[in-house]
Computed example of a mutant assay.
Amino acid sequence: MQGPGIAILVPADLVVLVLESFLYGVLVLLFVSAVHFLTTRRNFARPRAKHRLTSVVFLAVTALFVVETAHWILIVYEAFFGLIHLGNTASEVAFAADFAVPSGVAKIVFLFVAILVGDGIVTYRLWIIWGRNVKVVIFPIVTHIALAVLGLVLIVKMVTWAASQKVDFGEEFTWEAASAVLSLLPNLYSTAFIALRIWKVTDVVFTSESTLPWFLLILIESAALQTFWLLVCAVTAVLKSEELFSIPANTLPAIIAISNTLIHTRVGWSQG
């Protein structure tokens, strides 16, 4: 585990701790706002709050909130464990670089769950926005299945590495890069098609004063934030930069949860 650039992982983990804590605070505010709007605003399609809180999308968003909460707890645990119990810089560096520790494996599990749920929500919205056209979502569904299989293989490998106490960082990075790219492709596809559909049906004119709200509508409804962060993950993974990849990868569950919770918050605001 001793190699050039590994020592940068400890500062990177501190950046992750601060950044994800901030993002988690934003997510809590958005989630509470979404619940408030769903329970207090009138919705003609689903007049009862109970029906709105049991919708497929909101249950998926709730699952993302729970997953991100667990992921953030693990980030905080690792930070305190490294600072309090390891006692020296060398041990902290080795712990930060060892992805096969139980907490590291758990973070990977939560990361893949967040990606699959987030991708599922985007694909579901694509299907709804395009009038339940099955042909439009064939490509995302195929890539989701491939990503699920790839994630399962990576998790099994990490458990094996944890049992043998030997991590193949080169192989792990290859799997992670493939996962990032495989998640990025359907998100780019879905974001483009959702944005295209919204652009076609909206009456807003580009030259009008409402261009910015139109742009924000596209940004939120198409989950562009999620897609952008996946692009950052894919680029840093392909570059095989451990210190850079750890920051967007560890904050990805929070970004996915925020991106999808924003949809419910925006709907609630518009109804208000």
Rank of each mutant, 00 (worst) to 15 (best):
Q165W: 05
S55H: 11
T191W: 07
G104K: 07
F228D: 04
L9I: 07
G25I: 04
L29M: 13
V142D: 03
W229Y: 14
V15Y: 05
T211Y: 11
V16T: 07
I6T: 09
W199Q: 06
R197A: 03
F99I: 14
V153T: 05
V67L: 14
R52A: 03
L53G: 02
A90Y: 08
L147N: 06
V153Y: 11
S208L: 02
L152E: 01
N133S: 10
T211C: 08
L86I: 01
V16H: 03
L27V: 05
V235A: 11
S270Y: 12
D98W: 10
L38M: 09
L126R: 09
I129Q: 09
T143L: 13
L152D: 02
L184T: 02
V205R: 15
I115C: 12
S270F: 12
L147I: 04
S183V: 05
L147K: 09
K107Y: 02
V232C: 06
S270W: 14
P102R: 08
G87W: 12
E78L: 00
L182Q: 08
W175Q: 13
V235N: 04
E172G: 06
T202R: 14
L27R: 06
C233E: 06
L86T: 02
V235I: 14
I255M: 14
E176F: 09
Y124W: 15
V67E: 03
V137H: 02
A178R: 14
N250S: 08
T207I: 07
W72Y: 05
A60M: 12
R132A: 06
G118R: 10
I220E: 05
V56K: 15
L116P: 03
S179R: 10
V153A: 15
W229S: 13
Y77L: 03
T62A: 13
I138L: 14
T202V: 09
Y77V: 00
L38D: 01
R132K: 13
S210P: 01
S208M: 02
A223Q: 02
K240T: 01
E68Q: 07
I121D: 09
V28C: 04
V61Q: 10
A49R: 05
L252A: 11
F95G: 01
R48Y: 09
I247C: 08
F37Q: 08
Y189V: 08
T69A: 01
K107L: 07
L126M: 11
I138E: 06
W127L: 03
V35K: 11
E92M: 15
F58V: 06
V101T: 10
S190N: 09
G3E: 00
G25W: 00
E221A: 14
L147E: 04
V153P: 07
P11C: 12
F99N: 15
F206V: 06
A70N: 02
N250Q: 07
P140V: 08
P213R: 04
T211E: 09
V18E: 03
A97Y: 04
E209G: 15
K240D: 00
H36A: 08
V142C: 13
V156Y: 09
F215S: 11
I129L: 12
F95V: 01
T251Q: 01
A45H: 12
W130P: 00
S210H: 11
F65C: 11
A12T: 07
Y77F: 04
